[in-house]
C-alpha cells in the first residue's frame, strides 16, 4: 500500500505540489497575519457581537485589528476565491487526461482489470493531500473571516465558499469535474482551459442565484451600526414606532411637496417633509443569520456537481479507448 501511494504521488507530484503550494501560501499569509496581530488581545465575547468597535470593552482591541485584517486578511480571502477551484482542477484533470495523452493508459488499464478500481485508487491518493492542503487553507480563511466580521463587518454571505467547509467542497467538486473533463477530452491543457471556463461561469452563476435567493428572503429593519446584513431596501419608522414601507410613507406627503421631487433622482423634498413629521428612514435587509442559509445551497450545488462528475467519469473511462 505504501508503495502504491508513493508511486502514485510520484506520478502526479507536479500537480499535487502546485495545489499544495497554492493552499500553503494562504496558510503562510495567515501565519503572517497572526504574527502582525500578536499582542492584540480580543476578548472572546467581542467576536460575533453586533457592534464590537462601538463597545467600550471591545472597541480598542477591535480597532487595532483593522489595519492588518484589511491589508492581509482581505488578500487571503481574495486568494481563496481561486485556490479551491485551481487546486481541484489541476489535480483532477491530470488523473485521466495525462494517462490518455501520454499513452500510459494502455499500461495502466492492461494491468488493472477494473478501471473503476484504478480510478478510485488514483483519485483517493491524489485528492487526499490536495484536500488536506485546501482544508488547512480553508480553516485559516475561516479564522480570517471571523476577524474580518469582528473588525471590519460586512455581510459574510458574500464570501461563502472562500473559507470553511464550503471551500473544501468546492475543491472536491472541481476535482471531480477535472477528472470528467480530462476523461472526455483526453488532453490536459484543453481540459484545464475548459474547466477554468466552466468554474468561472459556475462562480458567476452562483453569485446571481445567491442574489436572487437573498431578494426572496424576508427583510427586516437593520439595527443601527450593524453592518453584517444585506441591505435590500428602505422603510420609514413612524413617530409611533411602527415601520411602514417607503412607498406607503411617501403616499402621506402632500401633493405640493411631492411635486417638487418630479424629475429628481432622489425624492429629497418628500424625505425632508417626512423627517419633519418625525418619520425616520431605516434600511431594510436580510439578517446575517438568514443570509447564511445560502451556505447549504452552495455546498449542495458543488456537492452534486462533484458526485455527478465522478459518476460520469466512471462511465466515460469504462468506454474509453486508451490511445
Amino acid at each position: 500500500m505504501i508503495d502504491t501511494v508513493r508511486v502514485t504521488l510520484k506520478q502526479y507530484r507536479l500537480e499535487v505540489a502546485l495545489a499544495t503550494v497554492g493552499a500553503m501560501a494562504v496558510v503562510l499569509l495567515w501565519v503572517y497575519l497572526q504574527a502582525r496581530l500578536a499582542g492584540i488581545v480580543v476578548p472572546d465575547s467581542c467576536i460575533g457581537s453586533a457592534q464590537p468597535s462601538a463597545d467600550p470593552v471591545c472597541g480598542p482591541s477591535i480597532n487595532a485589528l483593522r489595519p492588518a485584517v484589511a491589508a492581509i486578511g482581505d488578500q487571503i480571502l481574495e486568494v481563496m476565491r481561486i485556490v479551491p477551484f485551481a487546486a481541484g482542477l489541476l489535480t483532477g484533470v491530470s488523473i485521466v487526461a495525462r494517462e490518455l495523452e501520454t499513452g500510459t493508459a494502455q499500461t495502466a488499464w492492461s494491468l488493472n482489470g477494473s478501471r473503476r478500481r484504478w480510478l478510485a485508487r488514483q483519485a483517493v491518493i491524489v485528492a487526499a493531500p490536495m484536500l488536506l492542503a485546501v482544508g488547512a487553507a480553508a480553516l485559516a480563511a475561516e479564522s480570517v473571516e471571523s476577524l474580518r466580521q469582528a473588525s471590519l463587518g460586512g455581510p459574510a454571505v458574500l464570501n461563502v465558499g472562500q473559507y470553511g467547509a464550503p471551500a473544501i467542497i468546492r475543491a472536491a467538486s472541481t476535482f471531480g469535474l477535472g477528472m470528467l473533463l480530462g476523461a472526455l477530452l483526453g488532453r490536459s491543457a484543453s481540459a484545464l482551459a475548459l474547466g477554468a471556463m466552466l468554474c468561472f461561469v459556475l462562480y458567476l452563476g452562483l453569485g446571481v442565484a445567491r442574489d436572487q435567493w437573498l431578494a426572496q428572503q424576508p427583510s427586516e429593519p437593520i439595527p443601527d451600526g450593524v453592518t453584517t446584513s444585506i441591505t435590500t431596501g428602505f422603510a420609514y419608522r413612524t413617530p409611533q414606532g411602527t415601520t411602514v414601507a417607503e412607498a406607503d410613507a411617501m403616499a402621506l406627503v402632500p401633493p405640493d411637496v411631492a411635486a417638487q421631487d418630479d424629475g429628481q433622482v432622489q425624492p429629497v423634498a418628500s424625505a425632508t417633509w417626512l423627517e419633519a413629521q418625525g418619520y425616520v428612514l431605516v434600511p431594510l435587509g436580510v439578517s446575517q443569520q438568514t443570509a447564511m442559509g445560502w451556505v447549504g445551497y452552495d455546498m449542495l450545488t458543488f456537492g452534486l456537481i462533484g458526485m455527478l462528475s465522478l459518476g460520469a467519469t466512471v462511465l466515460v473511462i469504462d468506454r474509453r479507448r486508451p490511445t
Binding site: T4, T107, G113
Partner: peptide, 29 residues
C-alpha cells in the same frame, strides 16, 4: 485483462518513474 499480458505498440511507460516503480505499480494493480 487478468488472463492477458499486453505489450503495446509504442512505449507506454511512465517517463518519470523508475523501473522499480513500474513493478510496484503492476503489483498493486
Amino acid at each position: 485483462v487478468n488472463a492477458t499480458g499486453y505489450v503495446p505498440q509504442a512505449s507506454a511507460l511512465y517517463r518519470n518513474l523508475s523501473i522499480g516503480d513500474h513493478l510496484a505499480m503492476a503489483r498493486a494493480a
